[in-house]
């Protein structure tokens, strides 16, 4: 990545190399006007490694090549902002859609993929909602697979442990009382909730989707920093993971329009997209 119109703070060579590393590993681009974030985001890592500058960090990256320093740099640069019940109305609608799907295919579990799940708030919110909607256990309980490119985010998601600030963002207190326990100043999701989610590492720009076809894929607030080309490619991956007629849920302000013809707006659930059916074998309820 280049900075044609601005001189970023610090050595621009180092900044370019670091943003190139991020883009190569995750598809995420850092806009020139957000280049300042690189230094801010990497400060703790520099301190931890006893490095004085980004140039020294780059020197180490180049010298070691392998090892997990690159992973740590990438992790620190990823925007992992999330919260419980983010865009709550969308999640409520997803529960309705899931119930409709479940009624259509009572003989099997509905399968849901939360891609770019960050530290787990999104899939945990879903699991809570399904439970409240009488879809917490048994065949009616959807299978939830949650993935992220970031090993650090996944480690946190698997632990289900949240700081006081994180737990208070979006999570109604009654749900907190039901599903979390105090854990020395933090809050820990109860094992019976965490158990309902399978966490896996998956890079949307490099890896195959988790195995098996899904009925619903969430990919919210992940595509924001992808280039148009990478978005197109990722829509292909997401489409390949869905059953014909399956649903794609994007973040507020994200769209497939103009980028792919593998999805079209869903009539029944406004704001969701439907994977185009390639064969008329099975008609979905979502018209």
């Amino acid at each position: 990545m280049h900075f044609p119109n601005s001189t970023p703070p610090g050595s621009s060579g180092a900044m370019n190399l670091i943003s190139a590393l991020l883009e190569q590993r995750t598809g995420q681009q850092i806009a020139a006007n957000r280049a300042w974030r690189i230094e801010t985001a990497l400060k703790p890592l520099l301190r931890e490694k006893g490095l004085a500058s980004l140039d020294q960090l780059v020197a180490q990256l180049v010298a070691t090549r392998t090892g997990d320093l690159g992973d740590q740099v990438v992790d620190a640069l990823l925007n992992q902002e999330t919260s419980f019940f983010r865009d709550a109305a969308v999640l409520d609608m997803l529960v309705d859609a899931t119930r409709a799907l479940q009624a259509e295919t009572p003989e099997r579990k509905v399968r849901i993929w939360s891609s770019g799940c960050s530290t787990g708030q999104e899939p945990l919110s879903l699991a809570m909602l399904f439970d409240e909607g009488g879809m917490g256990e048994g065949l009616a309980a959807p299978e939830i697979v949650a993935t992220d490119v970031s090993p650090a985010a996944l480690t946190r998601a698997r632990a289900g442990r949240y700081s006081q600030f994180e737990i208070q963002r979006g999570l109604p207190v009654r749900r907190m009382m039901t599903w979390f326990d105090g854990a020395g100043g933090d809050w820990a999701a109860k094992p019976e909730l965490l158990r309902r989610i399978q966490f896996r590492q998956q890079n949307l720009t490099a890896d195959a989707p988790p195995p098996g076809k899904f009925d619903v894929v969430l990919c919210r607030n992940v595509l924001l920093y992808f280039s148009q080309d990478v978005r197109r490619q990722v829509f292909g991956i997401l489409a390949s993971a869905l059953r014909p007629g399956g649903l794609l849920v994007l973040g507020a302000g994200e769209t497939v329009i103009g980028l792919t013809d593998q999805f079209k707006p869903c009539d029944r659930f406004r704001g969701f997209y439907r994977a185009i059916e390639t064969s008329p074998a099975r008609r979905s309820a979502f018209g």
Binding site: Q168, R169, G170, V173, R174, G182
Partner: peptide, 29 residues
């Protein structure tokens, strides 16, 4: 900030609970 306090407050009729310290996002949410 303990669960026992939170439970007592909700049982007494409080609608929500904010643990101090809080920030803008917490309060807004």
């Amino acid at each position: 900030n303990g669960m026992a306090y939170i439970r007592a407050a909700i049982e007494a009729g409080a609608d929500e609970y904010v643990m101090k310290p809080f920030d803008r996002e917490t309060l807004e949410s």
